[in-house]
Nucleic acid binder design. Structure first.
Lengths: 216, 216
DNA sequence: GCGTGTCTGTCAGATTGCCGACAAACACGC
DNA sequence: GCGTGTTTGTCGGCAATCTGACAGACACGC
């Protein structure tokens, strides 16, 4: 779910961007608080400075999680998505209109913006791809593989990651129900493909086999 | 499915944009020909000058149509989507890198680019929204309403549109199968909510009732 | 006007995945 | 260690939708 950790955050701290940096205001949200409501009029751009945020669509009492933003991730509102704080959250917010004023002067900023939008778009296409062509089981496996990729840098002997989400939240990511995801995970565990060490922690003792399942 | 008919095409013909205009090369494709293959390396931006193009994802022998581009629509590749000519097609193509070089000099161009990406993104969100929350019937009804909106300007007494697609193609738009869409359409017709005048032509004698169905 | 190829309507069977219900496992404060 | 609220596992019934099959309708060239 990681989106676009461009160098925007780092760039902003360079002296030549001081003027732009001033357009970004830090805002804090306690865990669970709504950051943006569905059809918020304002278009803004923010960078996650601390904590995680969940970007999601909702309809009646259902929710679909589009992305989980981590530190360094950049996001633009002006879509019909809501955002909520998954942990205590700090973001740097700028009005899009304000940022736009600087675009002419700072080509680097333009590239960043275009990159952010491009990454969001590319991610959205992946999501559509999954929903249109894959069943819940495959979408879940893809999610596991995706998470695995992010920790693989640690090169642990046995690959584990702590996503810190409950089954219900996982279900909103793959667009399914708690019950379905629960039983799929348990089948995978019985087959020795995953291991659920604790709530919110999954290990992948046999990555190769998981990858095979994704392609079958 | 109409995307982003920004003023890019018109803007480009202004004398001050002559330099940028030169970066766009016209290309022709006969009906049915592939315009971009799935994972084409090059990132480019094009404007439809004549005909229609279909943007779609594919997986094994299934396809999902993301959008149908009309004259004036702008599209950027660099996603995993393919594009094919739905009619005989003429597009103005520019390499993204080439366009990017002009961005600094021409803020208006930047706005256009950001708008294009933003529109694509917003459309992608709508698609996800439909796939995640609505059943085939509702997605189909939304599609009908969407098409209705585009011709409503004609203010005909009874609203008709000729989409020029067969049932199978409609099915790829709503992410369903030919059989399902066929029977759903026939149920709607029996209920007097739509009228299929000829292949590829649908009339909506009772728009209000259709809208009611969409919200139920 | 006839024949061929495509498009459409419809049915039956199988599958997927949802939902409600309920019990067991867990987390955490006291 | 106990009690309460949350999370998880599992079952059964049900609705949506897919697939394959086939017949009838249509379109168009000759």
């Amino acid at each position: 779910m990681r989106l676009t950790d461009s160098d925007l955050l780092r760039d902003l701290d360079k002296p030549e961007f001081a003027a732009v940096r001033a357009a970004f205001v830090p805002r804090h949200f306690p865990k669970g608080r709504q950051v943006y409501a569905p059809r918020e009029a304002r278009n803004s751009l923010f960078i996650v400075a601390q904590g995680r945020a969940r970007v999601y669509l909702s309809y009646k009492d259902k929710e679909f999680t589009m992305a989980i933003l981590d530190v360094g991730d950049v996001y633009t509102t002006h879509t019909r998505a809501s955002v909520e704080a998954l942990d205590d959250l700090t973001i740097l917010v700028a009005e899009l209109a304000a940022v736009r004023r600087f675009l002419a002067d700072m080509p680097a900023l333009t590239s960043s913006m275009v990159k952010v939008l491009g990454d969001l778009l590319s991610h959205a296409f992946s999501v559509i791809d999954g929903l249109a062509f894959l069943d819940v089981r495959k979408r879940l496996i893809q999610l596991l593989l995706y998470e695995a990729e992010r920790v693989s840098a640690d090169a642990e002997h046995i690959l584990c990651f702590s996503h810190g989400l409950n089954i219900e939240q996982l279900a909103t990511i793959v667009g399914s129900s708690r019950q379905t995801v629960s039983s799929l995970l348990n089948v995978l565990e019985r087959d020795g493909i995953i291991e659920m060490r604790a709530r919110g922690v999954i290990c992948l003792p046999d990555l190769a086999r998981l990858e095979a399942l994704a392609n079958e």
